[in-house]
Design a protein around this nucleic acid. Structure first.
Lengths: 214, 214
DNA sequence: CAAATATGAAGAAAATTTTCTCTAAAAACA
DNA sequence: TGTTTTTAGAGAAAATTTTCTTCATATTTG
């Protein structure tokens, strides 16, 4: 097992999404050329990415859509259930709890946590809210593997430590700060500031380069 | 003006966040070594990244914190106001509208849009909701530069087209699908599926590589 | 049945990004 | 004042990722 390039991992869900729609439309076979065209990518890149999942295509025919979908799902381990805690029941945390589609990816939110006393004991979209300090024991007992962090930056490390104490395997971090963790714990940052920075900076650079060309 | 590497753009907000906290604590000067240590990065990389913003450091002294903060803010154009539309007033859209901190980055949500009749005419966190078909005219009239897309995948392209028709300069896309747009329109994808894919796949690969080492 | 064509596979090349190395400058200290 | 230490800056090297080439193979067409 060689490690998968980060960009490849990030493109796979897009193939998956496109392929699912193709299958809905009755398409049974598809070539990397078609996929590349639809997603504005290079066909070689598509092939290289798909290679990681282990599927084989046939010259002139391409890939079987159903086979490809299953290969990607398996590769991303989205066919196996993972129980998760959501920590921070604010705007974003609530939005996460309300988005049912995460189950399509194997992610099940079984409990949420907040420091706000008034929220504890209530439910958000059927998920019960507990006190932050219950995290370690409950995570251990319920065999939670993923922690979703939707707390303010200053609380992030503290909460992450509680999750790690509870034996969590991965943290999906939405707080605008890096988190330190032992190397066996996967930290996946998903920060708005990162992509907003890219967005605003690109706006300037696009303007500049378009101007230059004239 | 050379174009900025994507990873550099994404790291800059993290430096900014760290530097702001340092300034709060009264720190006036800081070295790339210290920044690197705090964020678990390589000090050369920190220097290379900061170089793009145009600041100069002094050997043995490092950088002036305040100067550095301003340089990053300027570089990311976060000191200039940008008016934005939020399209899709569901869970995520509402969460976006409720998160005031975007103003720290110059982003102001001035209106939101939804196809749900019952939402039109109401407000979410003080932002009024309009009908989707009002997008082009209102965007043009209000000189909107950024569109935030928090609609389901199947509606994404259609809504993007409306925003582009309204003369928008950039789209921040949260829908789990790629969007096609003319090259002068910046598309920044911020998709949950991408980072979830990376998270779940890494969980397997980390397990495997730790096992191998034993 | 043969030729043309589209396609995946594999590896090479190019581009991009990160890391390493060295040098010079500034500060600290003897 | 001279020596040592720390640090930024510049460029080279390494690693990673993307793109290009070539080739073999399956399908289609004449």
């Amino acid at each position: 097992m060689r490690i998968t390039p980060e960009p490849t991992m990030r493109r796979l869900p897009h193939y998956l999404h496109f392929l699912k729609r193709q299958m809905e439309n009755g398409v049974e076979k598809i070539s990397s050329t078609i996929i590349a065209q639809a997603l504005s990518l290079d066909s070689t890149q598509v092939r290289k990415d798909l290679e990681y999942t282990g599927v084989k295509g046939k010259p002139k025919t391409g890939f079987f859509v159903k086979e490809l979908i299953n290969a990607i799902l398996e590769f991303l381990t989205w066919t196996t259930r993972r129980d998760a805690f959501v920590v921070g029941a604010g705007n974003l945390g609530s939005a996460m709890l309300g988005y049912n589609r995460f189950r399509d990816y194997g992610l099940h939110f079984v409990a949420a946590f907040d420091s706000d006393e008034s929220k504890i004991g209530t439910k958000i979209y059927d998920t019960p809210i507990f006190s932050i300090d219950k995290i370690p024991s409950m995570a251990q007992q319920m065999q939670i593997t993923v922690g979703v962090l939707t707390v303010p930056a200053q609380a992030a490390q503290e909460v992450a430590d509680l999750l790690i104490k509870g034996g969590i395997k991965a943290i999906w971090n939405f707080a605008p700060t890096y988190i330190k963790a032992p190397k066996e714990v996967v930290i996946e940052n998903h920060q708005f500031t990162e992509s907003l920075a890219a967005l605003t900076r690109k706006m300037v650079e696009v303007d500049f380069h378009l101007l230059k060309k004239e």
